[in-house]
Design a protein around this nucleic acid. Structure first.
Lengths: 210, 210
DNA sequence: AAAGCACTGTAACAATTGTTACTGTCAGAA
DNA sequence: TTCTGACAGTAACAATTGTTACAGTGCTTT
């Protein structure tokens, strides 16, 4: 595990910290589509991504859902960080977008390392900042863009994360993540197809003109 | 100034830190309606609120605007915090909502105190967390609520912050902050008046049934 | 007093988004 | 093969939000 840690976090953390992480953490391989964090769940470990991608969703009590952003390798879940400084319940839902490899660190080390390692402090602050900017970006998209632009945006993000212009998903799933209805998604996707921006298949679609 | 610092931050910071803050900071009284931070502005000081309230707005290049949240006493601007860990440009606009008293701390101390004082670390992390939750809340409102609900929500927040159910503003200003049009706001306000939830005046309105 | 200006009310209409309903298609299960 | 259920296409309509245009009202300035 130390090898992989060094590969992905070696440029951030000193050897001593890498070793500490290695000593207290567990490595996990998680298949695509697995729910790893639920809203309201109490968290005792924070994830550090090695490979793969995770989608972070907002979920409210009435079944409303909305995609916030994706996490990639080198990222950590800032929402987990917040759990160490106050409320311990998750405000979000996290699902692996593709097969993912990550390290779980017991959250008590978060605080310990904050005092001990500047590199860890910087990492935590940098994570907060990155997630903050992602949230702002999400707000921009919801507030300032129309559904057709949001949809195209979503497809491009998805293609990027998956490293593939062939996107395997259903109209219903897209509708959930953009918080709209399946019919609206079908309608707009059809328009995108007419504009030769995508090609529609069953259970998948293809993004052209990347 | 030390007196006021102790009054508002004494329960958070140890005496030594309070004194350090006192030594390097400047106290400012800022009248209502003053723009204190603009989008794209480079920040060299971070504000700590003593009295008053500040509204934080998202502003894009095309003149779109959106209210994100309000800051009150004891709060700091997490967006300023992000400037210390990477990009130095502000992503947001800040305007005093009422007369405001605050301390400006040169940002280089942010990093210094992070290593030196646990209480400062906790404060910074706690600020990040609070602002993160505010942003999530903002996203909930934009994504899941209709304009009439958002409007009422906005009016209640505004009344709370000002400590007054008489809200002095124009329909146009509300429209900007909710990112909609003046006509829509007028229309919905009229409905709220018919439902006996508010009373409309010129340049102001009154919130009933608090 | 008259003019100018910001603010509000309202109508009429357009565009976008949401909803319901029904149809056809495809893939896997029985 | 037939049945079933998930998925996609489409029409028709409703609701919400955005836009344009114009009129009236109160305040300030000239």
């Amino acid at each position: 595990m130390l090898e992989e840690l060094k590969k992905h976090y070696g440029y951030l953390f000193e050897d001593q910290l890498l070793e500490e992480i290695n000593n207290v953490s567990t490595l996990k391989d998680i298949p695509e589509g697995t729910k790893i964090i639920e809203v309201g769940q109490t968290l005792s470990k924070m994830p550090l991504l090695l490979e793969g991608a995770i989608k972070i969703l907002r979920d409210d009590d009435k079944g409303d859902e909305l995609l916030l952003y994706f996490l990639e390798k080198g990222d950590t879940c800032a929402m987990t960080l917040t759990c160490c400084t106050g409320n311990a319940k998750s405000e979000i839902k996290a699902i692996t977008e593709i097969d993912t490899k990550l390290i779980m660190v017991p959250i008590q080390y978060m605080e310990i390392w904050m005092g001990k390692y500047k590199s860890w402090r910087d990492f935590v602050l940098q994570s907060y900042q990155a997630r903050m900017l992602e949230l702002l970006d999400t707000i921009d998209k919801i507030a300032f863009l129309k559904m057709d632009e949001r949809l195209l945006n979503y497809l491009k993000d998805k293609a990027m994360i998956n490293g593939n212009t062939l996107i395997k998903t259903t109209h219903q799933e897209i509708a959930y993540e953009l918080h709209t209805s399946r019919v609206v998604v079908s309608r707009l996707l059809k328009k995108l197809e007419q504009q030769k921006i995508i090609i529609l298949h069953r259970n998948s679609l293809e993004l052209l003109n990347i």
